[in-house]
């Protein structure tokens, strides 16, 4: 059953339809901790490298050490309120962390996870 739901979610996601946040949150979590080689840094990194795996916790910029406010909407309702800001950070951070832009579906899954956290 779970498998079918996932496939349905993928299909809906691919056509740009809005899928339920509950279904998208799970793949979002996997994307969050998936490791990628960051060539300039010479290290494997994931979203969690800076933001931590627990979205309710504050993170820290890898290089500057600056505090990054929590990503979970339950503790930081400011998140996702400014669409331009959301797009800006997805563009930068996907390119830096994954070496490419995130797809619309991946972004939706990550946002779903933030809402569910």
């Amino acid at each position: 059953m779970k498998k079918y739901l996932f496939v349905a979610a993928l299909m809906l996601g691919a056509t740009g339809e809005n899928i339920s946040d509950l279904t998208a949150a799970e793949p979002g979590k996997q994307l969050w901790t998936q490791m990628h080689m960051q060539k300039k840094l010479g290290k494997q990194v994931s979203c969690a490298s800076c933001h931590t795996a627990d979205l309710k916790q504050a993170g820290e910029h890898l290089r500057t050490g600056k505090r990054i406010e929590p990503m979970a909407l339950s503790v930081n309702p400011e998140r996702l309120t400014d669409p331009a800001k959301v797009e800006k950070w997805f563009r930068r951070n996907c390119k830096w962390t994954w070496g490419r832009e995130c797809t619309a579906q991946e972004k939706q899954q990550i946002m779903a996870m933030m809402k569910a956290s």
Binding site: K40, L41, R63, K88, R92, K95
Partner: peptide, 12 residues
Amino acid sequence: LENHFGENAELD
């Protein structure tokens, strides 16, 4: 800004 001291700091 795309390579801002090793970070991506692209702006609109």
